[in-house]
Simulated assay, not measured.
Amino acid sequence: MAAALGGLTRLLLAAAAVVAVVLLVLNDDGGEPSAFRSLPPSVPVQVVVPSLGVEAGIDPVAVSADRVLDPPEDVDRVGWWDASAEPGADAGQTVLTGHAVHTGGGVLDRLPAVRPGARVDLRTDEGLMRYRVTDVETLGRDEVAARTEELFGQDRGDGRLVLVSCTEWDGAVYRSNVVVTARPLGEPRPAARL
C-alpha cells in the first residue's frame, strides 16, 4: 500500500512539473509579472516593439478638420491620439500612429511585418503597460473609412491597443494602411477606484 501511494505521489509530482513547464512556455513575458493593466491610466510616453526593433517617444496628436489622424512631423516619433484612451484605462482603446517612409527611416516602416503574439510595451509616467498583438490587417483607404468606428472608436470596453501606419507604396502614394491590434495583459483597474 505504501509503495502504491509513493508511486502515486511521484506521478502527481511529475504531472505538476509538466504543467509548470507548459505554463512557463505559454507565459512569454520575460518572467515579469502580468499586472501591466493594474496601473492607473496615464499618457503614453514611449512605445517599444522588440520584434521590430522599435523604441520611440510618443507625442499627443489630434484628428484634423478633414478627419485624418496624422502622425507627428518627426518620422522618428509615434503619435498618440489624445482623444483615445490612456494606457491602463478599462474602457476605450489606445490609438497610436507613426510614419512609414517609402525610402526608409520611418518609425513604423516595418509595422506590416509584426506577427500575432508579438509583444508591445507602452511606458507611461505610472510604469509599463504590456500588450500582445492579436491581429494584423492591411486595409485599403475605403475600408478604413468604412470601419473607422470599429477600428478606432472609443466605445469599446476592452482597453486594447491599436497601431496604424501606411503601407503599399505605389510609387506616388501609399494605397493602404496596416492596422495592428493588441490586447492588454493583466487585469483592468478602473479609474474610479484610483
Rank of each mutant, 00 (worst) to 15 (best):
S42E: 15
V180R: 00
G57Y: 08
A2S: 09
C166V: 03
T9C: 12
G88V: 06
R37V: 00
T181I: 05
P41A: 12
R175Q: 14
D74G: 05
V63Y: 00
V180K: 01
V61N: 02
S176V: 06
L139V: 07
V63S: 01
L96K: 02
D135S: 14
E150D: 15
V178N: 04
S64K: 09
A85K: 03
D82M: 10
G6E: 10
V47L: 13
V68K: 14
D158M: 02
S176C: 07
E149G: 05
V173C: 04
A56C: 11
L139F: 10
V180G: 03
A118M: 08
R193P: 00
G92S: 05
V133Y: 00
R147S: 12
D59I: 01
A65C: 01
H102P: 07
G104L: 09
D29P: 00
Q154M: 07
Q154Y: 00
L185E: 05
D90P: 04
V120W: 08
R123W: 11
D125F: 06
Q93E: 04
A192E: 14
P112T: 02
A91V: 15
L96I: 03
G98W: 15
D82Y: 13
E150F: 12
R132T: 01
G106D: 06
P44L: 10
N27G: 04
A100I: 01
V43T: 13
T9G: 06
L122F: 05
L26N: 02
E168G: 02
A20E: 07
D74P: 05
L151Q: 07
A113F: 10
A17D: 11
V54L: 06
E73M: 06
N27I: 02
Q46T: 15
A146M: 04
T124M: 09
I58K: 00
F36S: 15
A172P: 01
V63G: 00
V173N: 08
G157Q: 07
W80F: 11
G104M: 11
N27L: 10
P116T: 09
L108F: 15
R77G: 05
V120Y: 10
E143W: 00
A146F: 02
F152T: 00
V75F: 14
R156L: 10
A182W: 01
A191V: 10
R37G: 15
P188L: 11
S38K: 09
D82F: 11
T167I: 08
G30E: 04
P190H: 08
L12V: 13
E150L: 12
D109Y: 05
R175A: 14
